[in-house]
Amino acid sequence: MSIDTTGFVSLLRREVLRFVRRPRNTFVPPFITNVLYFSVFGVILGERIDQIAGVPYILFILPGLVVLGAISNAFENASFTIFHGRWNRYIEEVLTSPLSYRTMVSAYVLAAAIRGAIVGVLIALIGAFFTSVGVARPLYLVAFAVVITLLFAGFGVAGGLWADDFDDLTMLNQFILRPLVFFGGVFYSLNELPATVQQVSLLNPMIYMVNGVRFGFLGVSEVDPNASLAVLGTLTLGIIVADIALFRRGYGLTD
């Protein structure tokens, strides 16, 4: 194996082991949060809400919750590992190695995407405990899951390089990511919004992710899934290329 292959596997393994060995920080919180979401919004409130887009409310929100969990965890993993590594300077173990910048970024992004995907599957399983759910379009589901976790892992790497403090990470997650997701059609249908707000909502990239994953689970979508996939795929490629350029420039990494 070349330095790049061995190095990539080593860094990927290190990154995956970091979150796998700390389930109390990585998997237990989304588990508890989503049990609460499904209990309160799905069961208690859901029974008082009519069907949306032809499906029961609990089923309607399930794909959105999967997206919310998957992208939050992908983002958090990548941003934390980069920022914490900078903060405690152990990222220098990687930076002073002969790995190419492309290999470094690929390993960080893929590991974070894996965590996002695991959390997404966990949430889907919690949903299946509360309601009967199938997968109408498995290929679309997998494609969207791959693209959105990679996309937010890519954003996480950039966020981790940009942050100067732990507060900056919290700000990215709470004030940017979470509002976009909540206004991204997780808990309501676009058709229920006034026409103008509907048009504005289409500027929110979360709409395409939530609808894409919803199409994978339920076979229904309020936007064209192929167009969504194409746009999201391009964005993902763009952010990963940008991450590599930032590493090459040493942004946030070198003096």
Partner: peptide
């Protein structure tokens, strides 16, 4: 000191060797 705090020191060394292409 700029050492990975998440892992026991033997694993830290294994990771570092891996980054340099050591199987």
């Amino acid at each position: 000191f700029n050492v990975d705090r998440f892992f026991p020191i033997r694993e830290v060394l294994e990771h570092k060797a891996g980054y340099h292409g050591v199987p």
